[in-house]
Amino acid sequence: MRYIRPSSLEDAVGLLAEASGKAAILAGGSDLLVRMKGGFIEPDLIIDIKAIDALGRITESDDCFVIGAAVPCAVLGENTALRHAWPGVVEGAKLIGSKQVQGRCTIVGNLCNASPAADSVPALVAAGAKAVIKGPAGSRTIAVEMVPVAPGKTSLAPGEIIEAILLDKRPPHSGDAYQRFTPRTEMDIAVVSAAVNLTLDDQGVVEKARVALGAAAPTVLLVEEAANILIGSRVDDSTLERLAEVCSGACRPIDDKRGTVEFRKKVAGVLAKRVALTAYQRAGQK
């Protein structure tokens, strides 16, 4: 095995594209090194992307936040502007692991690990976040929900690296929220989770909505029908009841030791109601 720490993204893409054996990108390592330790993966080449300057920064343009692929989640939580604009995304990212894991783990690693239970992904999907991808054939930008295609599998082509995640700047009266159900409050994997992102008009009526569910299907679910229920409402009780019903119905979860299908469906609806209310309150304050 070799370990290389390139200082430019072009070099990293070149190394990845030309690697003869199995090559792996190393960001925070909180999935990769665990899988190596377990013997599930034996890469011939590890490409550490943390020395590539641009990947380690959060920058802002007029219309979006650019979160470099090597930015650890702890830094997301320390960024006041991002926390203000996207509290739900930050809350998802901050739920990953412990203090120790937070100092290393990245949202891009969370996305590329492609676990259906990944905590930052539902909020990113609800936020309409985009992934900027660099590969041997050039750059492309896709919606984050297009990255994971099955548990442990992504749509990235050989040699492709995610460079950054883009989050739009917010119109007034916008808010998002994320919650997961876990038996413990800390250091646990989501049994099921939900994220809602709303923009209201000046009268407090929902104008735009996106709803995403985690650990409810092989990949994160974007539930358009649920969003349509929220649009045009003031997130009143009857809207919430219908939202819960649709979210429960949209789930295609598995039965396992952490939760049955029935339990996951029920709780997906309950969480969707709670996060819709939180997102609505947050949107109303801005």
Partner: peptide
Amino acid sequence: GTGDCGACSVILDDRLVCSCLVLGAE
């Protein structure tokens, strides 16, 4: 050895990390 227990904690620059989930080369 998998990031769950914190017994291997060290401070790397100004961040608390599990040294079992950091490569020596890093």
